[in-house]
Amino acid sequence: MNSYYKVGQHIKVRVTGIQPYGAFVETPDNTEGLIHISEVMDDYVHNLKKFLSIGQIVRAKIISIDDEGKLNLSLKDNKYFKNYERKKGKRSVLDDIRETEKYGFQTIKERLPVWIEQSKEAIKDE
């Protein structure tokens, strides 16, 4: 086991493979590791390929080291992925319209005042 790495340490790793359950990574000294899908962010992640790609270098935190010296890593402390979670929480008025409106013959003139109020509320919340 490589004693160079310690639990809690942040290191840069390169993504070498992506599976439905996680991403395989490698350190510059060729130590292998895994970032489990549940360790990418606190939100539910359906498809890792939306966040990671082969060859990408990311900063990860070591959460455990197995007996063979393989690293189990987390991206939850990575600022990029935390910012992605925050952005996901902010929604535009258009997103609300797409989800709540039933498309039909209702005129824009009838709906415009409601949309304006929704926009004003969204601006106040920021």
Results as ranks from 00 to 15, higher is better:
52 L>G: 07
101 E>T: 13
57 I>N: 09
50 K>L: 13
61 K>T: 13
91 R>S: 12
73 L>S: 07
85 E>R: 08
61 K>V: 02
95 D>L: 08
101 E>N: 04
68 E>H: 11
74 S>L: 05
84 Y>F: 10
86 R>S: 06
87 K>N: 11
79 K>I: 09
52 L>W: 06
54 I>Y: 01
82 K>S: 02
103 Y>Q: 09
93 V>R: 03
94 L>K: 13
51 F>I: 03
69 G>V: 10
60 A>Q: 02
95 D>Q: 14
92 S>G: 11
57 I>P: 00
65 I>F: 08
81 F>R: 05
103 Y>T: 10
93 V>Y: 04
53 S>K: 15
85 E>Q: 14
92 S>R: 12
94 L>G: 08
85 E>P: 00
96 D>Y: 15
78 N>C: 07
51 F>D: 04
82 K>A: 07
86 R>F: 07
55 G>C: 03
52 L>C: 08
58 V>M: 06
65 I>H: 05
66 D>F: 12
57 I>V: 15
91 R>A: 12
91 R>N: 12
103 Y>A: 08
97 I>C: 03
102 K>S: 07
81 F>N: 04
99 E>C: 01
65 I>A: 07
63 I>K: 10
100 T>Q: 13
70 K>Q: 14
81 F>L: 07
87 K>W: 09
63 I>L: 07
92 S>A: 13
62 I>K: 01
89 G>W: 06
102 K>G: 01
86 R>Q: 10
62 I>P: 01
104 G>V: 10
88 K>Q: 12
89 G>S: 12
64 S>F: 02
